[in-house]
Design a protein around this nucleic acid. Structure first.
Lengths: 138, 138
DNA sequence: CTTTCTGCAAACTCTTTGCACTCGT
DNA sequence: ACGAGTGCAAAGAGTTTGCAGAAAG
């Protein structure tokens, strides 16, 4: 059960720490390979998971692909319950709209933003005030 | 070039509009199938894309899987440039931390949140104040 | 009739996993 | 020597695509 400091783990860690961009697992693999040509992609995945579990690297949760669809057209955010997996709509007013002024000032054009909270929903947290545990609005 | 209103498209639309949860493409397929048993998953995907392009349904951009890794351990948000694809770190102070008070009051436990802005970065927007177009901090 | 759309299946991307072998400790 | 870690390749999810035939206009 004791963890080992292998060359592979150390190199993956160094590569991610040194990276200024936000490499995908594949990109990490390519860079590590320059030093350890025989390392496999599977090992990179395993080591990235291990490092993330140890909080030694950070996982960037970027909304990448469209995975879910919504008939509700208005702007709103989401709460993701880590216990029951529910996706709960949050009216935009439930959270302060993020301040884009600093971005605007820096010359960035903001078209949209996505805000997702993670945690435990009221139903799972034991507050018996919700009837349906899945997919209600707040 | 003219779009057709097929039974398949109409049914996918109705199902997504009627859904109170946030169905995945697969779930949409299952529901549509109850009415059109021969519809294929590929058609559902194509129609979801079409409806999203027409803004008739909303795509929920949920951070699904860990796709990218970061050696920067502090809390921060991201800006995704739609032009050059850059992922730019934003210090948390650049945007007002979202207000969780309403969620707390409703009995929700918030562990974390992910905030991503979409738009055009300063370099792509033509502001010549950035040297490297990819992956700088703000 | 023409052109778009569909069903099907194959292909593709990203990630995980089983297995025998390797290598830290 | 023991067992966690590795390379490889195969298997999984989730999504896209090529094609022949169906159907909307």
């Amino acid at each position: 059960m004791k963890e080992r400091e292998t060359r592979q783990l150390a190199t993956v860690y160094e590569v991610v720490r040194a990276a200024q961009d936000h490499p995908t697992a594949d990109e990490v693999h390519a860079r590590v390979r320059r030093r350890l040509p025989r390392i496999s992609l599977g090992t990179v995945y395993r080591n990235l998971q291990k490092l993330a579990a140890q909080q030694r690297v950070r996982v960037v949760r970027l909304p990448h692909r469209a995975a879910r669809f919504d008939g509700m057209l208005g702007e709103h955010d989401h709460f993701l319950c880590e216990r029951c997996g529910a996706v709960i709509d949050l009216m935009r007013s439930a959270a302060t709209p993020p301040d884009c002024a600093a971005l605007d000032r820096a010359g960035f054009v903001v078209h949209a933003h996505a805000l997702t909270f993670y945690g435990v929903c009221a139903a799972c947290a034991g507050t018996p005030r919700v009837r349906r545990p899945r997919d209600r609005h707040v």
